[in-house]
Design a protein around this nucleic acid. Structure first.
Lengths: 219, 219
DNA sequence: GAGGAAAACCTAACGGCGTTAGGTAAGTCA
DNA sequence: TGACTTACCTAACGCCGTTAGGTTTTCCTC
């Protein structure tokens, strides 16, 4: 038939692309995210470096593809955790999805560094690559909004302020963990095991109890 | 005299070392921390690359020197801010020194990345280079301890838990700012302007009010 | 001032890198 | 079978960090 060959060829091509990305992730895990080398990828695939340019126009394009994939994975990890949780309580739901998110970041430190730090010299993600990560952020905003709607958070928590603080805090804990104790598990990590407390801090601060907790700035 | 010449020579040598480090910082500011190149440094100094090896045995040694210097600078920035502040109230003192620390990090993003993220592929700071940063951390621990002693913080705040959370939160806010909006000022930065609120969260959570605020973990 | 040591800097070279240009062999389809 | 496309190759360019070894400048001692 006419389409069989073509299909097989494009399928093989897709397989090679997947192989390249997988090898790139492997190499970054051992050598560091910024130390990815086209030559090393080619070597591991039994190719010469120029052959890689049949699949990606540059090293930055590999970073870009991985950035996008990381965004998709993290978005799905969060959504899956929420879907599996059998509770309607947004506070409990948040505990579960933050734990899932944190575990995912610890198990995929390469993706985390690529997504949350901007540490690779010449690389800036393309808009398409950026989209999934932004969707994940929008998921989070919606989640905080349900907390507001159900009366367990003040409205600021789901605004720009709350979202920025939420991501700063959770991201900060994960960053410290990865930077200082990268091999620890979610339960043992000196920083990451404090994530529930960090979350408590957020929910307590934005608790809509009588009186405004958020005063105090002296100027 | 016999020492005059020697002194001048070592002085000139020290000047060259300073020049190298200054140029390295400049280049990292424009090209990215991990993109530092010996050749570019040499070019800017009107040298050939191998000549740099008279002053530093490797590129990693330059990173190491800058890591150490960054630690010293940040330690002194914090101490100076506390010394200048004319208050004994540890809460107010913390507001002031965190602001100073944050401003410093925004104005010295290269140092911040070097110190707080571990993003340069082959580089691991030597123990000597690490010492000043550790002293700064110890300063912070002592500061939190005075808060505990004066009764405005629960004891956990000055323990491993509180210290880890404090650095995660402040570091997280700064990291987000630098990653997402690096050109903003302390007052305008989308994340960094929330630093007082983040600090409030910490102090409120560890406030020694009646009852234990830190319950809630479901497991 | 002359001699000699040491420091500062150089060129040449090695092996690696990302990338481009251009060629060859195999797979695919009319 | 012949045309086309794909997958891969070699050769090359200009970078890079680093080492080896030579030359010039600077300084101390006599």
């Amino acid at each position: 038939m006419s389409t069989t060959g073509l299909d097989r060829r494009t399928r093989r091509r897709q397989e090679t692309i997947e192989e390249i990305l997988a090898v790139a992730i492997e190499l970054m895990e051992t050598e560091g995210v910024a130390a990815l080398s086209m030559s090393a990828v080619a070597r591991r695939l039994g190719m010469r470096p120029p052959s890689l340019y049949q699949y990606f126009p540059s090293k930055a394009a590999i970073y870009d593809a991985l950035f996008q994939r990381g965004g998709e994975l993290i978005r799905e990890a969060r959504r899956a955790a929420q879907a599996e949780a059998d509770t309607e309580d947004p506070r409990e739901l948040d505990r579960i999805s933050v734990a899932a998110f944190t575990r995912w970041c610890l198990e995929h430190q390469v993706y985390s560094q690529l997504l949350f730090w901007r540490t690779v010299p010449g690389f800036e993600p393309s808009p398409e690559a950026y989209a999934p990560a932004q969707e994940a952020l929008e998921d989070l905003r919606r989640h905080l909004q349900t907390g507001v709607d159900q009366g367990i958070l003040r409205p600021e928590a789901a605004g720009e302020e709350g979202l920025a603080l939420y991501t700063s805090i959770t991201g900060g804990v994960i960053a410290q963990q990865i930077a200082n104790e990268p091999d620890a598990s979610y339960d043992d990590g000196r920083y990451v095991r404090l994530m529930p407390i960090a979350l408590d801090m957020f929910y307590q601060y934005y608790a809509p109890t009588r009186g405004n907790h958020g005063s105090s700035s002296s100027g």
